[in-house]
Design a protein around this nucleic acid. Structure first.
Lengths: 207, 207
DNA sequence: AGTATTAAAGTAAGCACTTACTCACTAACT
DNA sequence: AGTTAGTGAGTAAGTGCTTACTTTAATACT
């Protein structure tokens, strides 16, 4: 009687599964989906290739698992958004920029994964891009809108303004970390943030 | 024998080598270096695979040829820079943004090639990234510097300011064309450009 | 308790196919 | 006749994925 009582215990393979996803994430971020072999993943995880296929029937499923976990995990950005909700005015922009720059400098793998995902289009990548890429935009858009309503900022399409600010910050991160341009250009984060926020805030200020 | 996919035919004066580079550029931009097979290139060029290796001893050499030609070709950006030299003040920013947005919308393959090149790092990609990525930045940086010296803009590190403006424009292009976010957000180019340039110019203006 | 049963976790080897790359050879042009 | 551009049929080294089998450990049944 296989169904009579199924104790809800930790599936024995759960740890391994998580480990495989972890290793795969590393490698996909480094070399892309197409540039990573299942053999490589197995080797780095210290197991045989077949184990991977015990847990994920296709290589593509591994990718899905990564995207899924990255989408649902509320660690990074949601905590950031909560933190930002306590701030007001210019502070929000400063804190947002500071967080993003330092986070991407510390570990650029998320940025790489997102970009690879955009170029090699898979089924789920669109959802990934959309949730992760638009999450912050929408928050900052709402913040800008409220500042406009308060009369602090001049009347401007908040969606476009939000993209202007995020563009400054994100493209800076991308060109420094992904394009590897930090060899040719280095300034302290605070300096860059100060100038970016100033340009944006002064440029948007009602007068 | 006729191919199911339309072969990219060789132009009358064009030699095989140039044709191969052309086809490879298309495919590398679409699927990346690792995601493109020599077989695919041959098929699309309507020739056998061996011909490719008559002209390029390794697949990597094909990539080098692409990067080389893209680096040395003065068609797109240099002409733009010449055009911009006739303009002054705010106009420069507007024209620059308008050119980049419409160019990337018309054909995003250059953007894709550059981004793939950044992720899959090959020997030459750094030079590619550097020349193509920094060319415009340096021009706009010089323009900003002169506007500061004239007293039009307030004293700011021109390198950072240039990156702020280019970030707005390029990240907008990238998120629209590469991340495929234009489904979720569409505004007329002029509207976006107007807002971007306004934020930047007002934010930088001396008062 | 001690033993049998079961299921999952693991492996080594290999399958069918694709990859970049080669070569012996043919036709065509000068 | 010799150079050139081209090919079809290879090659060895991968590729994702499967198979046939062993180990481990928890459970079920005397």
């Amino acid at each position: 009687m296989p169904d009579s009582k199924k104790p809800v215990k930790r599936m024995p393979g759960e740890d391994r599964k998580a480990q495989i996803v972890k290793v795969a994430t590393l490698l996909f971020a480094k070399n892309g989906f197409k540039g990573t072999t299942t053999r490589e993943i197995a080797r780095k995880a210290g197991i045989s290739e077949a184990v991977i296929f015990k847990h994920f029937s296709r290589k593509e499923d591994l990718y899905k698992a990564i995207i899924d976990s990255r989408c649902s995990e509320g660690t990074g950005q949601s905590r950031l958004i909560n933190h930002l909700k306590g701030k007001k005015g210019k502070e929000v922009f400063k804190d947002l920029a500071a967080f993003l720059l330092s986070e991407h400098q510390r570990d650029s793998s998320f940025l790489r994964l997102l970009t690879y995902s955009a170029l090699e289009k898979h089924d789920l990548s669109e959802i990934f891009i959309k949730t992760k890429g638009l999450e912050l935009i929408e928050f900052i858009e709402a913040h800008i809108k409220s500042l406009i309503d308060e009369g602090v900022l001049k009347k401007t399409d908040p969606a476009v303004a939000a993209r202007a600010f995020m563009g400054m910050v994100l493209h800076y991160s991308i060109s420094q970390e992904l394009y590897g341009l930090k060899k040719y250009f280095e300034r302290p984060n605070e300096t860059v943030i100060d100038i970016f926020v100033n340009i944006f805030f002064e440029g948007m200020k009602r007068r």
